[in-house]
Simulated scan of single mutants.
Amino acid sequence: MSLRLDTDKDTGVAVVTLDRPEKLNAIDLATAAELSAAWRGLRFDDAVRAVVLTGTGGRAFSTGLDRDAVVPQPSSPYSQDDPLIAIGPKTNDLWKPVIAAVAGMACGGAFYLLGEADFVIADETAAFFDPHTSYGMVSAYESVLMAQRMPYGEVARMVLMGNAERVSARRAYEVGLVSEVTEPGQALAAAVRCATVIAGYPAEGVQGSVRALWAAKEAARERGYGQAPYLIALGNLPDDRQAELFGNRPRTTPPRIR
């Protein structure tokens, strides 16, 4: 198992933990399936009234899709199998509040999860970036989700600068991606504190509020998602060229932190 689910029946808080520290919590196909199953299972657990999502190891919340995952694609540009499309709580019809606790790197496919969290708490080690363009890939779904959480110019810069820049926890707080910055190692505790407060409120009102908030974003997200497969089919380099860029591109300077 590459996912842990810990539930405190006394507080009504569940903690979902990505548990592949040796892979920087990258999401392979098995982990994707486990995430979807966890969210759908939590819908039926009435003892859980709020959820915290985090990653283990401290080096990364998640670095997105595992590069070793093999995802066959149909030849038609009108169809695409995205292995991460169904890893978020809202996509799985979970309307209990989800708070993300981020330490270390959060990049690329991690935004499928952060984009469907209700708010994000990060510690000072957190760094957000989107490497797609560096590897000849279109950032389609990730950019749509982040455009609903950050000002357009900030998302555009993060997407277009690729591996060259990382957004610090402090900058993420300034632009609204993160709601609180903690000392190193304290994001999970802060998220659990918030979740415990929320879990103490009547569940019907909380879940209705989550659903109403998401409805305000849903239409724009669906329009963006609708064009994503075509943009990816047109703009992505072939797999062998992506792999060449990923494996053979030496880093001459460390990424700039802003």
Rank of each mutant, 00 (worst) to 15 (best):
G108H: 09
S143Q: 15
A147M: 11
H132Q: 11
R149F: 00
D93E: 15
T125Y: 03
K90A: 09
L114H: 00
W95L: 01
V138S: 10
F128W: 09
V138Y: 05
P77I: 00
G88Q: 02
V159R: 10
M105L: 15
E116R: 00
M161T: 15
M158Y: 06
S143D: 13
I99V: 15
M161R: 14
F129R: 07
V98L: 04
G109V: 12
G104P: 01
P151A: 08
H132T: 12
D118T: 05
M105Y: 12
S134H: 06
G88I: 02
A156C: 08
G136R: 02
A169C: 02
T133A: 14
A122Y: 03
S134Y: 03
F111D: 10
A103C: 04
V159H: 08
F128I: 11
V70H: 06
T133E: 13
D130K: 05
M161Y: 12
F129G: 09
P131K: 10
L145R: 01
D118K: 01
E165K: 12
R157N: 04
R166K: 13
I99E: 03
D82S: 13
W95E: 01
A140C: 02
T133I: 13
G153R: 15
S134M: 05
R166F: 02
G88H: 00
Y141P: 02
D130L: 14
F111I: 11
A86Y: 09
E165C: 10
L160F: 09
P83Q: 05
I87H: 03
D82A: 12
S134E: 06
P89L: 03
